[in-house]
Amino acid sequence: MPEDAPARTWSATPGGAVIHARHCARCGTIVFPPQEYGCTTCGAHGDVLTAADIPAHGTLVAAVVVHTHATFPVPFTMAELKLDSGHVIRALLTGEGEPRHAARYRGIGLEIGGGQRLAFQLEAAE
């Protein structure tokens, strides 16, 4: 990975979207966002940090409609989700209807705002 290029943060796979992270072999932390500088828990670096994928499944903690953005088309809905791995992330929400708190959501690849984005939708909506 060139030092000036951020690592890719997610991919669509046949089994569903996954979020890319790093596993620290020294302390067991799953580090997200992915990087090779060092483990944010114990500071280990180098070969002890290996690629690890987190399934993009979780429950909705909070959601808001955003009305202001310099470049991205508004309105859009941002959410906070607690993934099954325990990680708490912020991501785009997609789908019809009001966001459902505590409901299960799943990540999908979405063409929006001029690029591919990971967005979360209600599992039942698939």
Binding site: E3, D4, A5, P6, A7, T9, W10, I19, F32, P33, Q35, Y37, V66, H69, T71, F72, F76, M78, I89, R90, A91, L92, R117, L118
Partner: peptide
């Protein structure tokens, strides 16, 4: 050069 899922949003 560390990027989260939707930092720009």
């Amino acid at each position: 050069a560390v990027r989260g899922l939707a930092d720009d949003l």
